[in-house]
Simulated assay, not measured.
Amino acid sequence: MKKTSLCIMMLLLCKLSFSELVLNASNLSPSKNEDFNIEVSFLNEDKNKYAIEGIDNFDIISKGSTNSYNSINGKTTSAKSDIYRVRAKSEGKFSLKVRTDKGEEKSIVIDVQKNETINSSLSNRFILKSIIPKNGFYFGEKIPYEEYFISGVRVSSLNIAKSPDFKEFSVKDMTPYSNNNYIQNTVDFNGKQGVQLTLFKGILQANNSGVKKLSSSSLKIGEPTRDFFYENTSYIGGEDIQIEIKALPSDAPHDFKGVVGTLNSLESWKAKEVNVGEAITLTLTLQGSGNLALIDNLPIEENINFNIFQNVKDYNEKIIDGKYFNEKIFEIAFIPKKSGIQKTPSINIP
């Protein structure tokens, strides 16, 4: 009887010795830009209910479960696992602890590295290029903003993990596409041929003055591996960009409409000789970096010699070589009230 009890106790001890809670990470020193796996495994026992303390420091991209069995020298080991694909929200050291309802615990520490090292490695393969012509603008100025993805290696996938954030600006999206695909060009990249995709092209305008912040796109990039079903994943972008929006000077000129920048003008008269009551028409084209959307009507003073009517014939804006450009075409009709040589009033735009 004692032998039987002893055998049963030994079997129980053996079972307990082979039962184990395991917590592993595929990378204990990732960067903010890298995905990695956290695996919770139950060896030789059923999966218990558990919680992971500290998991809120990571974004959970996906979760999967596996069951596996191994037999070595007649000994069979079973493993029931949950696999979490995660990415760190910030840099620093974070402790992860798995605690089961039965009181079992396992801990590991994830040391999330600063981005500089990984970014240096990634920048030799691909970059996200954000372009703003300067860091300071006056309130009312239009701000051109462009984003390009440039790669010198073969990429198996490219996804926008997070679109650019323009919460302190109004935005006009002017991104060009070709059959719903990004425009692609061949460029020089680190001394070799690379591929450039135009991800975003648009015009921003600050809602008020002060130091403003926008965030660039965050890209998820997959690079092919020898395993057809797996790719190496990296993240780039998501950087904050500060822009100073300066208040307009208090000593603005009379009739100032808030137009800051440079303007050129082109004029074309339809005729210079008409009968009394007929219109002499001027087509005036204004163009440059000044925000012409602020000018609805040209500042033309009332004149005793003419009845004057004006309207906007056309308006367009674009980004040329990284700089903002707009053009507005006015049509002004001067109708003489009396005969003789008359001088049309001047048009001055402060």
Rank of each mutant, 00 (worst) to 15 (best):
residue 166 F to R: 06
residue 179 N to P: 03
residue 175 T to L: 14
residue 170 S to Y: 05
residue 153 V to I: 07
residue 122 L to T: 09
residue 162 K to D: 05
residue 132 I to G: 00
residue 179 N to L: 05
residue 114 K to V: 10
residue 155 V to W: 03
residue 136 G to L: 10
residue 182 Y to R: 08
residue 159 N to F: 11
residue 118 I to G: 05
residue 150 I to M: 06
residue 162 K to A: 09
residue 119 N to A: 14
residue 146 E to H: 02
residue 177 Y to W: 12
residue 183 I to Y: 02
residue 134 K to S: 04
residue 178 S to K: 11
residue 173 D to P: 00
residue 114 K to Y: 12
residue 151 S to D: 09
residue 182 Y to Q: 09
residue 144 P to F: 00
residue 147 E to L: 13
residue 167 K to S: 02
residue 111 D to L: 03
residue 182 Y to W: 11
residue 165 D to N: 13
residue 167 K to A: 03
residue 113 Q to W: 08
residue 113 Q to A: 09
residue 171 V to A: 02
residue 159 N to P: 03
residue 126 F to N: 07
residue 111 D to G: 06
residue 157 S to E: 09
residue 175 T to V: 12
residue 134 K to V: 09
residue 179 N to V: 02
residue 180 N to W: 06
residue 127 I to V: 15
residue 115 N to M: 08
residue 170 S to I: 12
residue 124 N to C: 15
residue 141 E to K: 01
residue 175 T to S: 05
residue 174 M to I: 06
residue 119 N to D: 13
residue 141 E to L: 10
residue 172 K to G: 05
residue 145 Y to A: 03
residue 146 E to C: 04
residue 138 Y to N: 11
residue 131 I to T: 09
residue 145 Y to I: 03
residue 126 F to T: 06
residue 168 E to N: 04
residue 171 V to Y: 00
residue 163 S to P: 10
residue 143 I to Q: 14
residue 148 Y to V: 01
residue 138 Y to L: 10
residue 157 S to A: 14
residue 176 P to C: 13
residue 113 Q to Y: 06
residue 177 Y to T: 13
residue 134 K to T: 08
residue 129 K to D: 15
residue 145 Y to D: 03
residue 146 E to P: 03
residue 176 P to I: 01
residue 146 E to T: 06
residue 113 Q to R: 15
residue 122 L to Y: 11
residue 117 T to K: 12
residue 177 Y to E: 07
residue 137 F to V: 09
residue 120 S to K: 07
residue 135 N to P: 06
residue 173 D to S: 07
residue 134 K to Q: 15
residue 173 D to A: 06
residue 172 K to D: 11
residue 115 N to C: 11
residue 165 D to Q: 10
residue 150 I to W: 02
residue 127 I to P: 03
residue 155 V to I: 10
residue 165 D to V: 02
residue 115 N to R: 15
residue 120 S to H: 14
residue 153 V to P: 04
residue 132 I to W: 14
residue 183 I to M: 04
residue 137 F to Q: 04
residue 183 I to C: 09
residue 125 R to V: 15
residue 130 S to W: 03
residue 159 N to S: 14
residue 161 A to I: 09
residue 184 Q to R: 12
residue 128 L to F: 05
residue 160 I to P: 01
residue 141 E to Y: 07
residue 136 G to N: 14
residue 144 P to G: 07
residue 122 L to D: 08
residue 174 M to P: 05
residue 169 F to Y: 12
residue 143 I to Y: 01
residue 180 N to A: 06
residue 173 D to K: 11
residue 181 N to P: 00
residue 145 Y to E: 04
residue 178 S to Q: 15
residue 175 T to Y: 03
residue 126 F to V: 13
residue 131 I to C: 10
residue 152 G to Y: 12
residue 170 S to P: 12
residue 130 S to A: 06
residue 175 T to E: 06
